[in-house]
């Protein structure tokens, strides 16, 4: 992904923001603080607190969440912030290795 020149303005902005990586002010996240809603499967756990009720594999559901900004704290969103995130990977289950995860440090 780093070798692909972003084609649109927004993608360039994303790239700039990614490079910005200012100083030592960073990445203060270890564990999520819980997002499981009543009948939605959560991102980390299902309503029962396990993983068997989650989407399987997660790659099947990844773009559904990405497209509609379903877990904004855990998944990039296409509605506003990361329009081109999935461009390099048409099918997440097959090509998930092509996806860049968005870490504040990268």
């Amino acid at each position: 992904m780093n070798h692909v020149k972003p084609v649109n303005r927004k993608a360039r902005m994303v790239e700039r923001a990614a490079k910005h990586g200012a100083g030592d002010v960073k990445a203060l996240q270890s564990l999520p603080l819980g997002c499981s809603l009543i009948f939605d499967p959560g991102w980390e756990t299902d309503a029962a607190g396990g993983v068997s009720g989650l989407c399987q594999p997660v790659e099947a559901d990844l773009y559904g969440c990405y497209d509609d900004c379903w877990w904004p704290a855990q998944v990039p969103d296409q509605l506003t912030n990361y329009l081109s995130w999935s461009d390099s990977c048409a099918a997440a289950e097959r090509d998930w290795r092509k996806l860049d995860l968005i870490y504040p440090d990268r």
Partner: peptide
């Protein structure tokens, strides 16, 4: 098989 993931 589909060429890409179906969008919701």
């Amino acid at each position: 098989e589909l060429p890409g993931d179906p969008s919701v």
